[in-house]
């Protein structure tokens, strides 16, 4: 299928809300001209080379936070490949996400070393504290929980990450304390995050 063309002149019109669903989650998004230009720039920086698709997706996700269907269509159009190909790649790799993560994405390592040292209990505690499941985001968009397949810090097992920060040798009792650091009143690094 050829993706719907979004030419340079028409971009200003692409403000219509659209839905993307993966895991039956509905997300309403709007694509602004700046975002579309940003995606076009990223594609161009890789010479619109279809072999660089994964690098393009990495950079786009770093810039926009996630990869909803519209974004994928623009990339497909630029790289002259089918939208299905892009979708296939996005859904294949666990690093890419089609739903926005929280401001403080929490990842719990589920590698063997962490599992043996009680990562499951950390996960249970997090679910209880935040009242969400794996792969979900809290209603206030502050936190999201995901599982990782090993961050290579097995010596510190069990490991959890909040954003880029790694917490090692976590016990279930520490979870509340760690979350407290990122609650609204305490968090210094909090700034308005970009939403698509």
């Amino acid at each position: 299928m050829v993706p719907k063309l979004i030419c340079d002149d028409e971009m200003a019109d692409v403000h219509a809300p659209a839905t993307s669903d993966k895991d039956s989650l509905k997300v309403t998004i709007k694509l602004s001209v700046e975002k579309i230009n940003a995606i076009n720039r990223i594609c161009a920086s890789y010479d619109n080379d279809p072999e660089e698709l994964i690098s393009v997706l990495h950079e786009t996700q770093n810039t926009l936070g996630y990869l909803p269907a519209e974004v994928q269509e623009i990339i497909a159009h630029n790289l002259k490949i089918s939208a299905a190909h892009v979708y296939g790649v996005v859904t294949f790799y666990s690093y890419f996400t089609m739903v926005p993560k929280g401001d403080h994405p929490i990842s719990v390592c589920m590698g063997t070393a962490c599992y043996v040292r009680g990562a499951e209990k950390i996960l249970d505690e997090l679910k209880k504290e935040l009242n969400i499941n794996i792969g979900e985001t809290t209603p206030d968009q502050r936190f999201s929980i995901s599982c990782l397949r090993c961050v290579g810090a097995c010596g510190l097992a069990p490991v959890m990450m909040v954003g880029e920060k790694v917490y090692g040798r976590v016990s279930p009792n520490d979870v509340r304390k760690i979350l407290e650091e990122y609650r609204e009143d305490n968090c210094e690094e909090c700034k308005p995050t970009q939403q698509l």
Binding site: M110, Y115, R149, C150, G152, C154
Partner: peptide
């Protein structure tokens, strides 16, 4: 691509 959980020598 050290995907093997529990190994971190490559890193």
């Amino acid at each position: 691509d050290e995907g093997d959980p529990g190994a971190f020598m490559d890193r």
